[in-house]
Design a protein around this nucleic acid. Structure first.
Ligand SMILES: [Zn+2]
Ligand SMILES: [Zn+2]
Ligand SMILES: [Zn+2]
Ligand SMILES: [Zn+2]
Ligand SMILES: [Zn+2]
Ligand SMILES: [Zn+2]
Length: 879
DNA sequence: GAGTTTGAAACT
DNA sequence: CAGTTTCAAACTC
């Protein structure tokens, strides 16, 4: 059934493009609500069925969790499927470009895949435990996060499987690579078949094996399954008419709540209604809108697709924003929207299962985007979301950084591939939309295509890709290509890993570390960090988290103090300065002037956490930090080393550090239009949350956002939190369980900083996929905002890290999550977020700035949820 | 593109 | 927790 529907959808997409997304939800209090979305889904029939099926699968959620979230998550599989679909469809435009027919074919393929998936899904669904998490891709997600937690739809994956994955624990890396490229296919097969667990498991087992412990499968299960859907909503998005705001609210979002049920739709897409709305907002007139509305079933389908796209977009949210800003595309908004929409879609897909969907809602907002026709250009906007997103953070970050670059990358990729590079997120890795592009791209595509395309160049093509295998394969190949091409340039944002021995299941792998699945651009060998291997990934993550709960937490955080200072004073400036590497570097020979230094690489100054020798970090020396926070400012001011020191390398893309500064400033000052905020990754966020709560108290997660503009400008300066970018690829977060354990361990985290994302392209390393909670991160803690400073717009999460206990804000999390549509704003939580938002919501976001999320309590939504979420959330990640 | 350097992650 | 090894990116040539 599903398949059929999908097909239809595909077709529809082909036909039309636009979509709207929506999202979010919110949720405050009741995360659970079902969302309209779900209802919506139901209506859609096909989907529904699928969803239902899906729902079952996974997760259980964690347990603990709450029920609220409880909703089942969508299984990753579903997501995958969806993704696939999405990819296929990605953008009508793409399709068109490529060939409609092709697209259709692809869609079919997808469908097939889906079918397989669906089966799995169904199984999962039966379980219904899973929760979906929604990862918002982006920041927006914050809300999502909350909501999402449950869903993590994210693009990527679902995690549903986690349970098994857990089991897998053993495997390990060893695999050797089994052929890289092949892997995909092989694995996929399995994957598809069994959703859960890992077929790949073997490998995974090996990897994990050591860990053995790793995970209790059981625990994971809970986790795994859940999905999270993230909807990232870029803050930036917001704007749009629609709704932003409204969207914020999004009833739609609710989807999840019910998990299933209806709610999801909201996120996902609201079906028609949302669309319409959205459409209307932006351009109603335009194709997209029209299409949406018009279409009945098909429309719905389309919508779904779109949603899917959105999801992807979500991932890319940042990008989108960036695009706008950078490109100044007006469309950006669209893109953004699109992202949102995608997210939604995904969610929707997830939702399909409906079950879970409810959760999602909470978050919020979603964005809606509308897309117009294929080329469309327009899009609408959406609102966005929230954030929450955890992943997003990381991803977001990435996205941001990418932004400009991304676009570039995209182009490149596309060029390279000729078209499809991107893999559909859905497909393999989940999220990855594009292989090519960095994450962002992926996301974008769909709707934005046009824009994106324009921006990116070939967007369509890439997007189209689809699916599964081919995707993977594609990806691999393409990735290689890209890599080669882009590799070089991180700048592209496209960067990806090129792991040879770790199978991308260890933190050595930037993708994995960032909670992303490897995509085409990756040149890794024997990669198990694929969507198909979600289980394995999760298991791996869990293991790692068991050892170090904060392992996946953003490395760059803002110190609250600093934040305040900065914010208070300048607002903008500070950010960067305030951002610091959580663990600090240990440089001996690079003097913190090269990217060997994580601090420098993240565009942040060294802090007392650093054990570097001869520190000459342009962004601020260790000494300076010790002296006073003022340093940062100094830096801004030029004082500091930067100017003197020099431009360090490359971290800034800009030649000179100064430039960087300038840019950053610019960024700050001028927020780009789009700033989008990103969210943290939902999945992680949860974890984060838990961690945070446990460990530090507050980590806020972060959110990020990005602006393209910023990114460009700011990027350099902006701290890069983690972004790999790809939102699309987000891996499932680990399950809560892990979190728990982790929490224990968490002790380590020392300083509490908030997380920030810088603009730049952050190495994936910095990205954080945090859980949804983080997204909350978005939360800024109440503190100040902070935001903008970073030119890059990054979001910072504050981590209050350390706060031990509970996240300060946590309580609100839910709210925060809500962020809602707001696109830009994300406010999820009222408090902090608001603050931030207030600052300039739009600007901030747009500016790319950063968002800081402070405190976040991570848990967004339901308190109770918290744990649960955490559980759920974790998984998302990638594996 | 190959080879070296580097410092984090993983391991003991 | 420290020391060592492994790893992949950053950098150099
Ligand atoms: Zn890798
Ligand atoms: Zn990779
Ligand atoms: Zn890989
Ligand atoms: Zn250093
Ligand atoms: Zn340092
Ligand atoms: Zn240093």
């Amino acid at each position: 059934m599903v398949v059929e529907e999908e097909q239809d959808e595909d077709r529809a997409q082909c036909r039309t493009s636009a979509v709207v997304v929506t999202r979010p939800a919110t949720i405050d209090s009741s995360p659970v609500q079902e969302s309209p979305f779900s209802n919506y889904l139901n209506t859609l029939s096909p989907i529904k069925s699928a969803k239902a099926a899906n729902v079952g699968q996974t997760f259980h959620g964690i347990n603990s969790s709450p029920i609220v979230f409880a909703s089942p998550t969508i299984s990753s599989q579903r997501n995958n499927i969806h993704l696939k679909r999405i990819r296929m469809f990605e953008s009508p435009n793409d399709v068109r470009k490529d060939d409609p027919t092709d697209s259709c074919q692809r869609s079919k393929e997808l469908v097939d895949l889906c079918g397989n998936a669906s089966d799995d899904v169904n199984k999962e669904i039966s379980d219904s435990k899973d929760m979906l998490r929604v990862q918002s891709c982006s920041s927006s997600s914050i809300v999502d996060a909350f909501l999402a937690d449950p869903f993590e739809a994210d693009c990527t994956k679902f995690t549903h499987s986690s349970g098994r994955q857990v089991n897998c624990s053993k495997s390990t890396l060893d695999f050797d690579h089994e052929g890289d490229s092949t892997k995909g296919s092989e694995r996929e097969g399995t994957d598809l078949q069994h959703v859960s667990p890992r077929r790949s498991s073997p490998d995974a087992d090996e990897l994990f094996s050591s860990d053995g412990p790793a995970v209790g499968a059981e625990e994971y299960h809970g986790i795994g399954p859940s999905f999270s859907v993230r909807c990232d909503v870029p803050v930036g998005d917001l704007p749009i008419d629609d709704g932003g705001d409204q969207s914020g609210i999004d009833p739609v979002l609710d989807i999840k709540g019910g998990s299933h049920v209806g709610p999801s739709p909201s996120h996902v897409l609201p079906p028609r209604d949302p669309f319409q709305d959205s459409e209307v907002n932006e351009n109603p007139g335009e194709d997209a809108s029209g299409s949406l509305r018009l279409l009945d079933d098909t429309q719905h389908r389309e919508v779904l697709y779109q949603q899917r796209f959105l999801l992807r977009r979500c991932l890319r949210f940042d990008d989108m924003f960036l695009d706008d800003s950078s490109n100044s595309l007006g469309p950006m908004s669209n893109d953004v929207n699109s992202l949102g929409s995608l997210a939604v879609e995904d969610l929707g897909n997830l939702d399909l299962s409906e079950e879970t969907s409810t959760f999602i809602k909470p978050s919020v907002s979603t964005v809606i985007s509308v897309i117009t026709g294929p080329e469309g250009k327009r899009s609408a906007i959406t609102t966005s979301k929230p954030s929450g997103i955890g992943l997003h953070l990381n991803s977001i970050v990435g996205a941001r950084s990418f932004d400009s670059r991304e676009t570039i990358c995209m182009k490149h990729e596309s060029d390279n591939h000729g078209g499809r590079d991107s893999i559909p997120v859905g497909a393999g890795t989940g999220i990855l939309l594009d292989k090519n592009a960095t994450f962002p791209h992926d996301v974008v595509d769909p709707h934005n295509f046009t824009n994106a395309q324009e921006h990116y160049g070939t967007p369509h093509d890439k997007r189209m890709i689809p699916l599964g295998f081919s995707e993977t394969e594609f990806a691999q190949t393409t990735a290689k290509r890209r890599r080669k091409a882009s590799n070089a340039s991180d700048t592209d944002g496209c960067k990806r890993c090129s792991c040879k021995k770790s199978r991308c299941l260890k933190l050595y792998c930037d993708c994995f570390a960032a909670g992303l699945f490897c995509t085409e651009p990756c040149a890794c060998q024997g990669c198990l960090n694929r969507f198909e291997e979600q289980d394995t990934v999760l298991a791996a993550r869990e293991l790692i988290e068991s050892r170090n709960p904060l392992a996946f937490a953003p490395k760059i955080v803002l110190s609250n103090k600093e934040l305040d200072r900065t914010i208070g004073e300048d607002g903008i400036m500070s950010t960067p300065s305030s951002s610091r590497h959580k663990k600090g570097c240990n440089c001996k020979r690079s003097m913190c002037q090269k990217k060997y230094c994580e601090c420098y690489q993240a565009n942040v100054g060294c802090s007392d956490n650093c054990r570097c020798e001869g520190c000459k970090n342009v962004f601020g020396t260790k000494e300076a930090s010790l002296e006073g926070t003022g340093n940062v400012k100094l830096a801004m001011g030029g004082t500091y080393s930067r100017d003197h020191l020099m431009p360090p390398t490359p971290s800034f893309q800009f030649s000179d550090s100064r430039k960087g500064l300038q840019r950053s400033r610019l960024a700050i000052e001028c927020p780009s239009p789009n700033s989008s905020v990103k969210l943290g990754a939902a999945g992680w966020s949860r974890e984060m949350q838990s961690e945070v709560s446990k460990e530090s108290s507050t980590l806020e997660t972060i959110a990020d956002f990005i602006d393209s503009d910023f990114s460009e400008k700011a990027d350099e300066f902006a701290p890069k939190h983690d972004s790999l970018g790809g939102s699309s690829n987000l891996a499932p977060l680990s399950s809560p369980t892990t979190m728990k354990s982790s929490s224990e361990s968490s002790k380590t985290e020392p300083t509490p900083f908030t997380i920030c994302y810088g603009g730049g392209h952050p190495p994936s390393r910095f990205l954080w996929r945090g859980g949804s909670l983080e997204t909350p991160g978005i939360v800024s803690g109440g503190e100040k905002s902070h935001l903008d400073d970073n030119p890059g717009g990054k979001v910072y999460g504050n981590l209050e890290d350390d706060a031990p206990g509970v996240p300060k804000d946590v309580p609100s999390p839910t709210k925060p999550v809500i962020v809602g549509s707001p696109n830009r704003k994300r406010v999820s939580s009222p408090h902090k977020q608001v603050q931030e938002c207030r600052i300039n919501p739009s600007t901030a976001l747009r500016s790319g700035g950063k968002f800081i999320l402070k405190a976040v309590p991570s848990f967004p939504p339901l308190t109770p949820l918290l744990e649960p979420r955490s559980n759920t959330s974790e998984p998302h990640g990638p594996p």
